[in-house]
Design a protein around this nucleic acid. Sequence first.
DNA 1: TATCAGGGCCTAG
DNA 2: CTAGGCCCTGAT
Length: 268
Amino acid sequence: MKVHITDDFDLKKIQDSGQCFRVRETGNGIWRFIHLDRILYISRTGESEYEVSAGEDEWREIWQPYFDLDRSYESIRQAIPEEDAFLKRASEYGKGIRILKQDPWEMLVTFIISQRKNIPAISKSVELLCERFGRRADTEEELFFFPDSEEMSGADEEALRECKLGYRAPYVLDAVNKVRSGEIDLCKLNEYDDRKLFEALKTINGVGDKVANCICLFAYGRTALVPVDTWIARVIETEYNGQSPFDRYGGAGGILQQWAFYYARETG
DNA sequence: TATCAGGGCCTAG
DNA sequence: CTAGGCCCTGAT
């Protein structure tokens, strides 16, 4: 099926934006995305035209929200004043990135794993986790879904360490326990305001400010929240004299953060 | 081969 | 509030 996307949209930049770790280019300009047990193949076929493997209903109900397509990123870019030269530059450089609305459980586990790792190492661990605990997809290529909390409930620390989780293994076990017991209801958390959501996530072992903000932004679409990692901390220090510029942009701070992160990481 | 840093967080003091 | 320690991997 063909779809039209007129707003900023760049598959390669989305893949490299550091919020998703299982997106692959399968060749010939076709990108593969996985959300829960859905797989999407998508390629650009014209100025604002894309070929997608999904039907109309699935596109509208699953992938349109997934890519946050009801929001105009172009107008967010244009609202940045010229005086804010760095963010102006970063937003143009990162034009095409979207904040993906991904599965909360997957984001919780993935960003617990992410601490003190680089992106290739995160991808490796996530892939091992999928192969070991996830369900195999009914596809020609060997492909595994991200394991849900039930599928991971049989995991012990040793098995997780074999997935290269290191000292994070007990953290992930705590996440499994809290979700399986109902102490944390990832679906219910959606009803909380930003602050409550953030605090609830932090009750899980291994979830600090940075990881909690990532989950809020990349799973719950809380675009006002700004994860501060080493790259963003560096930007705030060197470009803004230690004064974070992101709060000035209210509800869009998290989106600007993503442009800044991408720009800083890609250009050194 | 050795060294360093990596999308941090927890615990002690 | 601040300093170590942590388990490894990827990069140089």
